[in-house]
C-alpha cells in the first residue's frame, strides 16, 4: 500500500474515531462520590486502606490519607489515577491548584477547586509534607 494512501486512511480514521467518540458521549468525565473515590483508590493501591477522604466539590479529585501518607486522586476521563504526595510543589491557579509530582508519567496534576477549597487543600498538603 502506498505511503500516501496509508497516511490518508490513518488520518481519516483518527478523525472519524474522534468525531464518533464525541457524538456518542464518550468524552463525559467521571464524577466521584466518597465511596467511589475510596473504591477507586483501593483498586489502584493494593494493600492500602483509605483512612480519610476529602473529596473536591467537583467530584473530580480527592485527597486521601492512607498508610500514614497523603495521596491525591484525580479523574482521568472515565477513570482515575492516584499518586502519593511527597512534598509536591503547589502552584495556585485561577481554577484551583497544580501539583508537581516527581513522576515522569504524571509530572503535573491540575485540580479544579473553589478558592476556599484550594486554601484548605494547600494547608493539608503542606502539613503532610
Amino acid at each position: 500500500m502506498p505511503l500516501w494512501l496509508l497516511g490518508t486512511i490513518v488520518v481519516v480514521g483518527l478523525i472519524a474515531v474522534w468525531i464518533a467518540s464525541r457524538f456518542y458521549g464518550y468524552d463525559e468525565p467521571l464524577t466521584l462520590d466518597e465511596e467511589a473515590a475510596k473504591r477507586e483508590f483501593i483498586a489502584d493501591n493494593p494493600g492500602l486502606v483509605p483512612e480519610e477522604v476529602r473529596l473536591a466539590a467537583t467530584g473530580q479529585s480527592a485527597l486521601i490519607h492512607a498508610g500514614g501518607r497523603l495521596h491525591v486522586l484525580w479523574v482521568m476521563g472515565q477513570d482515575v489515577a492516584t499518586h502519593v504526595l511527597d512534598a509536591p510543589q503547589i502552584i495556585p491557579t485561577n481554577s484551583g491548584l497544580v501539583l508537581t509530582l516527581r513522576d515522569f508519567a504524571a509530572p503535573r496534576v491540575k485540580l479544579t477547586l473553589a478558592p476556599e477549597e484550594a486554601a484548605t487543600w494547600t494547608a493539608l498538603i503542606e502539613d503532610a509534607a
Binding site: 481519516v12 480514521g13 474515531v17 456518542y24 464518550y26
Partner: peptide
C-alpha cells in the same frame, strides 16, 4: 478503523459490551 467504529457504535446502541473514552482511544 472500520471495526473500531462498528464496536463504538455497538456499545452506544446496545449500552453494553465495553467502554470507550475519547482521550484514551
Amino acid at each position: 478503523v472500520a471495526a473500531i467504529l462498528i464496536e463504538m457504535t455497538w456499545i452506544f446502541i446496545a449500552n453494553r459490551g465495553g467502554r470507550y473514552e475519547v482521550r484514551d482511544a
